[in-house]
Design a protein around this nucleic acid. Structure first.
Lengths: 230, 230, 230, 230
DNA sequence: AATGAATGAGCCTTCATTCAT
DNA sequence: CATGAATGAAGGCTCATTCAT
């Protein structure tokens, strides 16, 4: 990783932990209201007057804290991508994992999946805004793309290669392995949250079965050789 | 499938083939311009005057053909979901496949994937609009949800069960198998089109390797037992 | 009356009887629809497209018969004033009445009132349009004003003077007598039609009692001298 | 009068006196401009942009004070009916008059007529708007109808009955007496203001002669019995 | 810092009118 | 005569943003 990147990383980590430079209580109320409304109607269809009303502040107050409406959006949607990637930003992330001698790849996936799933649930509205506005806000797009290409992909590559060396993961380009795994989890979350938001299911069980599919695929496998986890 | 559904199916199939009741040449120009602009800036941020200008018609002309701006959106974004699901609407879809005695599940996946991938490329902008507006247009949401739950899921379930009986697919809830497979392909397409639109890759090869992952998972498998496809 | 006026009178009488130059059946349907809608929402708030729809013709057809929307209004609202004044246009109107030796003024008022009241009922919507648009259409205003000043007032003046000479009507400027009498009847009709459209009353009786007030006023009068009519 | 009505009365009286909740100077300019233009071209044909221009404010400013154009109309035309009826709203109106032992009915009529005539002259444009829009704005219609039925008619009935008992007014339904008297005055005002706005006449004399007609009617009356007032 | 009245550009939509068919 | 697609000006209204208080 270049020195450039090192500096960027530091900034990102501060962002990931930072309190988002929210200073006054009114500003907090504005942000909260904006999240609610942007998420509900989309950025373009949301009006600053509605946000002001919901936040219980005067319209002018919004523009005291954020120069434009888009500024407000960026200040809300920008950091969430960083936070989503936060675990991968930790300096020790890869090394810690790689040092654990008996760690199973499957266990790692489970840990990450559960952690990020919880994150998604906790920040659903914010992520919704981010996903929706990414195509229309080049800033967001570039920032997020870079984040995942430079940080997440890089870190995960090391780990995947590590497990490939240990013989736990097949030989295939790490990016394809990452993409596939991520897609499956995203698909799982998406289905849960969007198609059947009210259904009550055993999530741990669901994750376990999904891990089965990730690890062994759809094709039946010879008995006893690759015992399924409980 | 209920009789109700039968009727609905017929309507959908007509929609799937229909020329979208576009009658005049000006109307076609309006639709084309609208697709372009909706896709580019999103529905809410698009202006009818811009659409009119791009279409080379007077603004009033739009409203002669579509009662409201939202009407225009629905008439554009509504049918695309049906078309996306079109192959699954064909009466013979399942039966045809199930009758082929030696058909491999993997071959089926490949066929569907290639076909739909082509479709996505051909109608990228339209699908972009659909995906973006679904959360804000209850009509689109319900229609699309029903389409996939009632048609696509139902048809694919039959097929998956069929291959499960033939021992080509592990015993797992068909919906989870469908979800996983679909997610992986969607992830592949998404990555291709969004993250690396310009990169030049051997798509057939990519599909094949992705099928490997779908069929056998990440875990290394005993030699010779499940030979990889060519 | 000047020669000028004589010519005008002739034209007016033709108008008063004329079939309004309505030639085709579609035109008739347009006029009918226009009356309905102008009366209901007012001229400015009525739209030609609504009229066309109600008439069952194409929008263009309206403009084949009437150059503009205002043209349509004038062709509808213009003649109704003339028709309202029609009885006073008849050449023989005054002379006929004046020749009847034993005619009572009260009987004359009764006759006119009943006749015009019926006319109002028969052409309520048209009169509504006329009254509403008079202030905004100078043509209508001038035409109507002239009609009443030159024709109605003139004719009634002769008659009132005649009855003054016969001692049946007090000495007072004829215009004031006409204005008062007309106002009372208009007030009666207005109250009937606007404030209590559904109430069921004995109209003949009402007219008679109103004539009492016109003839003898509010002040109680000595017995036997001016016997009230039954 | 019911308690319900008592409460309503209070509200109305506040309205009748109230400064119409006009707070800023710009709002006052908007109202003034709106009165001018509504009166001139009618509500439907008036445009908010024209009003804004005449008021010297931005068009948006109008909509900050009044949610819709119709809102502006109602806020202008609504109160004027109440103000027109204001004298009849005063709690002491009837009692005061009835207590004056030697009061003549004719004097009462004269007082009211002069007062209201002045009011009409002072608020001509507003009344014009009210009269024109009443048929198209159900709110105005109902409010005004109720006002006159519940307040004006009720109060005047008491008074008329009082004078009937004193023998100054003939026995006839009070509502008919009111209607007739009101019609005559309205006709007088209407003629003055609409047909001959520029003519210069002795108004006091005109009122007096009109009162003659109201009190004694058109029929000549025996000498000396009911001496005409000067 | 906070307010909220004021702005004016721009939005979606309607409308009277025209014209080729 | 009749049609109805097309027009483009104008309408009512919303909105992000500014600024004096």
């Amino acid at each position: 990783m270049s020195e450039q990147n090192e500096k960027w990383l530091k900034e990102l980590m501060m962002l990931a932990e930072g309190s988002d430079h929210i200073k006054t209580e009114k500003q907090a109320r504005i942000v909260e209201a904006a999240i609610e409304i942007f998420s509900e109607k989309g950025f373009a269809a949301a009006s600053t007057s509605e946000i002001a009303q919901k936040a219980g502040v005067a319209e002018g107050t919004i523009f005291r804290h954020y120069k434009t409406k888009k500024d407000l959006l960026i200040s809300i949607a920008g950091p969430i991508a960083v936070k989503m990637a936060a675990p991968f930003l930790m300096r020790e992330f890869a090394s810690k994992i790689l040092d654990l001698p008996h760690e199973q790849f499957r266990d790692l996936l489970r840990t990450i999946a559960k952690d990020r799933l919880q994150f998604v649930r906790d920040h659903f509205k914010l992520l919704r805004i981010l996903i929706h506005e990414i195509p229309f806000q080049p800033e967001l797009l570039e920032q997020t793309k870079a984040l995942f290409k430079e940080i997440v992909l890089k870190r995960m590559e090391e780990i995947i290669i590590h497990f490939q060396k240990k013989g736990q993961v097949i030989e295939a380009p790490p990016w394809r392995i990452l993409r596939t795994t991520a897609s499956i989890f995203i698909g799982m979350v998406g289905t849960r949250l969007l198609l059947m938001p009210d259904e009550d299911i055993d999530e741990d069980e669901e994750i376990e079965r999904t891990l089965d599919l990730i690890m062994y695929g759809l094709s039946p496998h010879p008995k006893e050789e690759q015992p399924r986890s409980t």
